[in-house]
Amino acid sequence: MVPEELRYTEQHEWVARAGDDTVRVGITDYAQRQLGDVVFVQLPEVGRQVAEGDSVGEVESTKSVSDIYAPLAGEVVAVNEAVVTAPETINGDPYGDGWLVELRISDPASVDGLLDAAGYREKIGEV
């Protein structure tokens, strides 16, 4: 499942525009299926400045652990505390209640440089 309206990264994250200069970030359905049951999430502190590609947290399943990367440069303006207490939300609703962080991005146009749904589908071999 790759929603048409979102943007994507090579690291299996989705990016949604939340405001003029803010985006919401989560991991894709493909990513949560690869991970298996998520049992622990670690998120960054609000206010942290991040560069594109910085590790801003971890998503841990029984089997493995993966970094959460900042898809774009900016500042962390919100984190989803609900997934910290209920990590399984990431498996159940990766594009909705399972969101991870919101960023105020330094360059609002940078979103356009990310993969679109077609590009991401191609990447994961889902045509």
């Binding site: 090579e10 690291q11 299996h12 994250e13 991991i27 894709t28 990513a31 690869q34 991970l35 998503v59 493995s64 993966s66 970094d67 959460i68 990367y69």
Partner: peptide, 8 residues
């Protein structure tokens, strides 16, 4: 998310 290869 780091990429995990599950190619058959």
């Amino acid at each position: 998310m780091s990429h995990q290869d599950t190619s058959h």
